[in-house]
């Protein structure tokens, strides 16, 4: 094998993906050719430099990530800022009263927990409410204003889910992405049997928790 043939095989040689015969031929050539040997070392050198050690996240990392998923938004900013109230006021949805949407006392009731927090351009609105008993086949429909979409369902303006409610706390997390500055209305319809409740909330555009 000559130098040119070796050079065309350097990449595969360093990947250890040459067949046994080629591999041996290259190795033999390298034994006697200082110039090609240097090239192989250069190939290995630059590849090695690609790999820098990666820093490990701190011990609270997992908790923060799961909390962000549950509570919606940026867990890191969420609890460290003293102006959580202001942050919430600046956020997307002021409050969707999903609680008290059915008249009877045995049906879901209770105050909603609204925890919207900004994270990059995705702002998650988190709704939680108590249900007095388990309910099957509740239909939840969301209609989004033109300037927002669900991060997990880009382009969808109207989304419906068939959900079951557990007795006790139920949560609804809405990761909303603001596509462009604007104002609009988010409409949520909750339907169980022949009962329907409609909720509307203003969805602002661009305000962020610095």
């Amino acid at each position: 094998m000559n130098c040119n043939q070796v050079i065309t095989r350097i990449e595969d040689y360093c990947d250890a993906s040459l067949g046994p015969e080629d591999r041996q031929a290259v190795a033999q050539h390298l034994d006697g050719c200082e110039s090609c040997y240097r090239k192989v070392r250069a190939e290995r050198r630059w590849r090695l430099m690609l790999a820098e050690p990666v820093s490990e996240p701190d011990s609270g990392f997992e908790q923060r990530m799961l909390q962000a998923a549950h509570g919606g938004g940026d867990a890191r900013r969420r609890w460290t800022t003293p102006v959580v109230g202001a942050a919430m006021a600046a956020c997307l949805v002021g409050g969707l009263f999903l609680g008290q949407w059915l008249p009877s006392g045995s049906e879901p009731s209770g105050a909603p927990v609204v925890g919207p927090v900004a994270s990059q351009d995705v702002e998650t609105v988190n709704l939680a409410f108590e249900s007095g008993k388990a309910l099957q086949d509740v239909t939840l429909t969301l209609e989004l204003p033109p300037h927002a979409e669900l991060a997990s369902m880009p382009g969808e303006r109207r989304i419906s889910w068939q959900v079951n409610l557990e007795k006790g706390e139920n949560r609804l997390a809405l990761p909303l992405r603001t596509l462009f500055p604007g104002e609009g209305e988010l409409v949520a319809r909750v339907q169980h049997g022949n009962q329907t409740k409609t909720f509307r909330a203003a969805v602002g555009g661009t305000q962020r928790d610095g």
Binding site: L140, S152, G168, N170, L174
Partner: peptide
């Protein structure tokens, strides 16, 4: 989108 506590 909608999670019960056990799903969470």
């Amino acid at each position: 989108m909608f999670l019960t506590r056990s799903q969470a």
